[in-house]
Lab assay of single mutants.
Amino acid sequence: MKGKVVSYLAAKKYGFIQGDDGESYFLHFSELLDKKDEGKLVKGSMVHFDPTPTPKGLAAKAISLPLE
């Protein structure tokens, strides 16, 4: 699924993505496929991810940034 980063707290390594389906997904650095892309996780960045339901809500897994 595609989505847009709505927040990312680099110090805490987490944030949120708004998916194309309108839902909010929890984003964690550990799910970023290329850790070098962390600096690109800023508000408004477009990402691809696997939407995954968890006991705490919806989460983004296997997060990647589109090729530039």
Rank of each mutant, 00 (worst) to 15 (best):
L9P: 02
F26V: 04
D20Y: 09
S24P: 06
K4Y: 15
G39I: 14
V5C: 03
D50M: 15
L27F: 15
T52I: 13
I63C: 04
L33E: 06
G39F: 13
D37S: 09
K4P: 02
G15W: 03
L9H: 14
T54G: 10
H28R: 07
K35C: 07
K43S: 10
H28C: 08
S7H: 11
G19W: 03
V5P: 02
K2I: 10
P55L: 09
G19V: 03
D20R: 06
A59E: 08
V42C: 10
K4E: 08
K36G: 13
V47K: 00
S7I: 14
K40V: 05
L58S: 06
S64R: 14
L65Q: 05
V42N: 08
Y8K: 02
L58V: 05
G39Q: 12
S30W: 09
K35E: 09
S30I: 08
D20M: 11
G19M: 02
F26T: 04
A59G: 05
G22Q: 05
P55E: 11
S30V: 08
K56H: 12
G44V: 02
A11V: 11
D37R: 04
T52P: 01
G44Q: 04
S7T: 12
K40H: 08
L33F: 05
A59I: 15
M1L: 08
P66I: 15
E23V: 10
I17A: 05
E31K: 05
Y25L: 01
P55Q: 10
M46D: 08
K4M: 12
A60W: 01
L58N: 08
V47Q: 00
P53N: 13
M1V: 06
A10R: 13
F16N: 04
A59W: 15
S64F: 14
K61H: 11
K43V: 12
T52M: 14
S24I: 15
T54I: 04
V42F: 10
D20C: 12
M46T: 14
L67S: 13
S30N: 13
E31L: 04
G19K: 00
E31G: 06
G3M: 00
S64N: 08
V42M: 10
D20T: 09
L58Y: 09
T52L: 13
G44W: 05
T54S: 08
H48P: 01
V42L: 10
P66Q: 14
V5D: 01
P66S: 15
E38G: 05
A62S: 13
G15E: 00
Q18L: 14
E31Y: 10
F49N: 00
K40S: 08
S64Y: 15
P53A: 13
H48C: 14
K61T: 12
G15T: 02
L41V: 05
G19H: 01
F49Y: 05
Y8S: 02
S24D: 06
E68W: 12
K13A: 05
K2A: 11
K56W: 14
K43G: 07
K2L: 11
L27V: 05
I63E: 02
V47R: 00
E31R: 04
K40T: 04
D37E: 07
E23I: 11
P55R: 10
K40I: 05
K43A: 12
L9A: 13
G57M: 04
L32V: 04
K13E: 03
G39S: 14
G19C: 02
L65D: 02
F29K: 06
K56V: 08
A59H: 10
Y14A: 04
S45M: 15
G19F: 02
P66F: 15
D37M: 10
P51Q: 04
V6I: 14
S30Q: 08
D21P: 00
D37N: 08
G3R: 01
D21T: 04
Q18M: 13
A10D: 05
K4W: 15
L65G: 04
V5N: 01
S45Q: 15
S30E: 09
L27D: 00
V5R: 01
S30D: 10
L32W: 02
D20L: 09
K56P: 04
S30T: 11
L41A: 02
S45F: 07
K4Q: 10
A62N: 15
E23Q: 15
K35H: 08
L65K: 04
I63F: 01
